[in-house]
Design a protein around this nucleic acid. Structure first.
Length: 535
RNA sequence: GGCCUCAUCGUCUAGCCCGGUUAAGGACACAGGGUUUUCAACCCUGCAACACGGGUUCAAAUCCCGUUGAGGUCACCA
């Protein structure tokens, strides 16, 4: 038996997701319980959404929670590079081989044609699938197109008939028909591979023995299996983990919950508690123990004990666990040291101080007036959020569009946030004061507070984001349908503001591009956190 | 909608693979009580589940089939 090698393969397209940590934990526990290795590989093949800062954040978040990898982009290893954007030549060569083996073909269809094709398919009730137009291009046409340097993608040549059976360690045999599977794009027109291509090649080259990933990948596994077969490679063992869920049992999304690992860090959860909690999602120790360290988990880890139903991520229980750690595993000194590393330190105080000085008369005024800087959750009435002359619903819309506007900003500072607030005031035709008022309450829980934008800068994007979400919840929430409407309305209002037909910001997906991105994007196009590096 | 997956208390789960040992166990939450100057913690008690319908069997939460429900997925995103 070759040594067990597993990997976590996050995509640096947003804030580090708890789902990434969850899958990482189970990969880690599995590997270590088998004396194997755990790798970290960065899947940054989406040039439009990937960003190095997100990569840094992922590594930082995984380290914070206490996971260590044996090979990765930061520490290297014998199977590098561990960043897919640095392996494009490898993928190109393999695509070439695949073409030769008749496992793939070049497709010259334009995005417009594909879009039109799908529209028609949907209209007549068929499944949206590539129609295979370029599958059988004659040599002459092919040569001509190539000579013209026409842009193309490379697609997987999925058999027309037959069945595909994949073996999942937890679920047994899963069978489906090839006819239901699309001719997946393997190499995009920018020459970067898609996930399907890159993950198979890398897993093979990096000698990955077990692919432990989220259940959302199950439907695309046949494509991966096909690739292994075309290449003539041994397949790894597939283990699809249950999903982390919102309270309404849909896939955990940042729209309604804090999904960034950094939220939990900034809100003061203990990392070992978060990791422990993740370890009880879909899993239980054989002895029933609920509070356990990773080492304990590894000591008797049994992947077969993983339960298959999705698990609702219950912050209540997480809080209880965190409290249990504080009480049972910390001394006052140790906790104090921990809190000092967190936000109870002179560095953070010195940032808060300039905002507070003008507003205090005694030092005793300090704490009560700015406790929100350290609070995890705020307590206030929904009423306080709603400015006079505006409704709860309108306020929710404005707050939601603030979230969206703040989403992908590369820098997080007071000036940027203020600019956004002003922009939103213009778009919604609200007085700036009316827009700032609910922001004050949402961010601080009070309507008397230090300067808002600077406070938000200190609070950081993760805490602020969730405070927005909570405020919107208090205002009645923002269901999917409303969100979709809101996106439309926002587009219209923006268009009205700049009548010039601006070619829209730079955003990959037309739909997901809308301001209120979180929701209706397709599966997981949500820019930032969604893609819980399930992989 | 097609395909795939899943289905034990409100939530996380044990039990299911190897049917009987289960009046289905634990934890969170909730309710009540105790302890405590208060709160928290802690202790005790209570509430609360095998989705439904058929089989198989002497016996089914456990095996099989169906129904229903839920979720995932159907991109030049991962």
């Amino acid at each position: 038996m070759s040594p067990v090698r597993v990997r976590i393969a996050p995509s640096p397209t947003g804030a580090p997701h708890v789902g990434t940590a969850y899958i990482a934990l189970f990969n880690y526990a599995f590997a270590k319980s088998q004396g194997g290795q755990f790798l970290l590989r960065i899947e940054d093949t989406d040039q439009t959404r990937s960003h190095p800062s997100y990569e840094t954040a992922i590594l930082e978040a995984l380290r914070w929670i206490g996971l260590k990898w044996d090979e990765g982009p930061d520490i290297g290893g014998p199977f590098g590079p561990y960043r897919q954007s640095e392996r494009t030549e490898i993928y190109r060569q393999h695509a070439e081989k695949l073409l030769l083996k008749d496992g793939a073909y070049r497709c010259f269809c334009s995005a417009e044609r594909l879009e039109k094709m799908r529209e028609e398919q949907v209209k007549r009730g068929a499944d949206p699938k590539y129609d295979g137009k370029c599958r059988t291009l004659g040599d002459a046409i092919l040569a001509k197109k190539l000579k013209e340097k026409a842009p193309f993608v490379i697609r997987l040549k999925v058999p027309k008939r037959g069945k595909c059976t994949i073996e999942d360690r937890l679920r047994g045999s899963v069978t489906c028909e090839y006819k239901d599977i699309d001719d997946q794009v393997l190499i995009k027109s920018d020459n970067f591979p898609t996930y399907h291509m890159a993950n198979v090649i890398d897993d093979h080259l990096m000698e990955i023995t077990h692919v432990i990933r989220g259940e959302e990948w199950l439907p695309s596994t046949p494509k991966h299996v096909l690739l292994y077969e075309f290449f003539g490679w041994n397949k790894p063992e597939f283990i699809h983990m249950p999903l982390l869920l919102n309270p309404d049992r849909t896939k955990l999304s940042k729209r309604r919950n804090p999904t960034s690992i950094f939220y939990y860090r900034d809100a003061g959860f203990l990392p070992e508690a978060l990791l422990n909690y993740l370890g009880m999602m879909g899993y239980s120790r054989p002895n029933g123990q609920e509070k356990f360290t990773v080492e304990e988990m590894i000591s008797d880890f049994d992947i077969g004990r993983v339960a298959l139903g999705g698990s609702v991520f219950d912050i209540h229980k997480l809080r209880w666990l965190s409290g249990k750690y504080i009480r049972e595993s910390y001394t006052p000194e140790k906790l104090a040291a921990c809190m000092a590393q967190w936000r109870i330190n002179s560095e953070y105080f010195s940032k808060v101080m300039p905002l507070m000085m003008e507003r205090m008369e005694t030092m005793g005024d300090f704490m009560p007036r700015c406790s929100f800087f350290w609070a995890g959750e705020l307590d206030y009435d929904a009423e306080a959020l709603i400015p006079k002359k505006h409704s709860a619903e309108e306020t929710a819309k404005v707050l939601q569009s603030m979230i969206a506007g703040l989403e992908h900003e590369p820098v997080w500072n007071a000036a940027m946030i203020e600019a956004k607030a002003k922009e939103m005031a213009k778009i919604w035709e609200w007085k700036i004061r009316d827009i700032v008022a609910p922001l004050f309450v949402a961010m601080t829980g009070k309507n008397v507070a230090p300067p808002l934008f600077q406070s938000m800068e200190l609070l950081g994007p993760h805490i602020c984001r969730y405070r927005f979400v909570q405020a919107i919840e208090k205002l009645g929430g923002m269901p999917k349908e409303k969100l979709a409407e809101l996106e439309k309305e926002l587009e219209e209002r923006k268009a009205k503001l700049n009548p010039q037909p601006q070619p829209k910001p730079v955003e990959p997906n037309p739909e997901a591009a809308t301001p209120t991105e979180p929701e209706n994007r397709p599966p997981d196009a949500t820019p930032p956190e969604e893609p819980p590096a399930t992989v």
